[in-house]
């Protein structure tokens, strides 16, 4: 057996384990840190597939930018030690049964169904090297995938305007405090 398989299962196990900690741990700060670990494990999986660009983006955007945002939010809402969050609320047995059944169904379908690209295989790595490298990725983005690329830019513009719209303070809403005083 290829050694890369061993590493694949190692990183996959770390990713799943960290994801479980995110859901089950009651301290939100620990959850956030476990999430960072999960992002790194996923980035390692991308690296193994030869997709160094996606791996870098994964670390930069997810583990970097988004986690900083998360931590800022956690900082701002000031959770008391007493009042820690419980994500797994007490559910009725019926919900649990349905969830378990759905999970079993999912697993069955994924195990029985063969995907065109096997995880961690040599051909996957070759395909990744062809399409996941930064150069190839950039070339694809400006040729074949030019249209979705442009749609994404409009999407970001709309999202930005929307965020500003919902978050800004209006004069009348802050009660006589002018915008200059606020900033």
């Amino acid at each position: 057996m290829d050694l890369s398989f061993l590493f694949f299962y190692l990183f996959a196990a770390v990713a799943v384990g960290a994801a479980l900690v995110v859901v089950l741990n009651r301290n939100i700060l620990h959850c956030a840190m476990a999430l960072v670990l999960m992002f790194f494990a996923i980035a390692a999986l991308f690296l193994m597939l030869g997709a160094e660009f996606i791996a870098a983006v994964q670390v930069l955007v997810y583990a970097g930018a988004i986690m900083v945002l998360f931590l800022f939010v956690i900082l701002l809402i000031q959770i008391d030690r007493v009042q820690m969050l419980r994500f797994a609320h007490r559910q009725s047995p019926l919900v649990v049964i349905i969830a378990v059944l759905l999970l079993a169904e999912l697993l069955y379908m994924i195990i029985r169904g063969t995907l065109g690209i096997a995880p961690g295989g040599a051909d996957a790595a070759a395909a990744g090297a062809a399409s996941g490298s930064t150069e190839a990725f950039g070339a694809l983005l400006y040729t074949t995938y030019l249209f979705p690329f442009e749609v994404a830019s409009v999407l970001l513009l709309a999202a930005m305007i929307g965020a500003i719209l919902l978050a800004r303070l209006d004069k009348e809403e802050v009660g006589g405090v002018s915008r200059q005083d606020m900033s």
Binding site: L106, Y108, M109, I110, R112, G113, T114, L115
Partner: peptide, 10 residues
């Protein structure tokens, strides 16, 4: 001929 593939159903 992937019509019977469970992953497709999923």
């Amino acid at each position: 001929n992937l019509g019977a593939n469970p992953a497709l159903l999923l």
